[in-house]
């Protein structure tokens, strides 16, 4: 991400230090991760210490400090999905992809995350890939869904 674009985002938020989280969210959304150079630029522009940026970037779940895979798998581990066997779906996806929540595989194909509720508990257990919802998942079905992505 180039400096000009980061400056534009900072300017959109009027260079307000209190908008730090909003600025980082914009960068994260656009770039899908937060490169160090971007964080340094933000620190410089807003005049906030790197320690604060470092804390925020690791405190909130939305941020990633490493590049993400091409496909984002979100597995709901909300209570409704949990009592319907969501953890077994998660176990199976971990086995199939070889990664744990928070990780990205070596080919940068999949990033796996757990989420707390996707707001469609009627469809639980739910797996979402790149924003598409796959509802009422059974462990045995996950392989069929995952093989549609490359």
């Amino acid at each position: 991400m180039d400096t000009d674009r980061i400056d534009q985002i900072v300017d959109k938020h009027h260079g307000e230090p209190s908008s730090l989280i909003q600025i980082l969210l914009d960068i994260q959304t656009e770039n899908s991760w937060l490169p160090r150079e971007a964080l340094e630029r933000v620190a410089e522009r807003l005049q906030v210490p790197m320690t604060r940026i470092q804390h925020i970037a690791t405190f909130y779940k939305a941020f990633s400090l490493v590049p993400k895979g091409r496909h984002q798998i979100h597995i709901c581990v909300g209570t409704a999905c949990h009592v319907r066997g969501g953890s077994r779906v998660l176990d199976t996806v971990e086995d199939l992809t070889g990664i744990k929540p928070g990780e990205t595989d070596l080919d940068l194909k999949f990033s796996l995350e757990t989420v707390n509720c996707l707001g469609c508990c009627a469809l639980g257990p739910v797996m979402e890939i790149d924003g598409k919802t796959h509802g009422k998942m059974a462990p045995a079905q996950t392989a069929d869904v995952l093989k549609n992505y490359d």
């Binding site: 909300g78 209570t79 999905c81 949990h82 707390n116 509720c117 707001g119």
Partner: peptide, 11 residues
């Protein structure tokens, strides 16, 4: 709203 399995406020 962050309670897992709750989405009233969202809706």
């Amino acid at each position: 709203e962050g309670d897992p399995g709750a989405y009233m406020d969202r809706s």
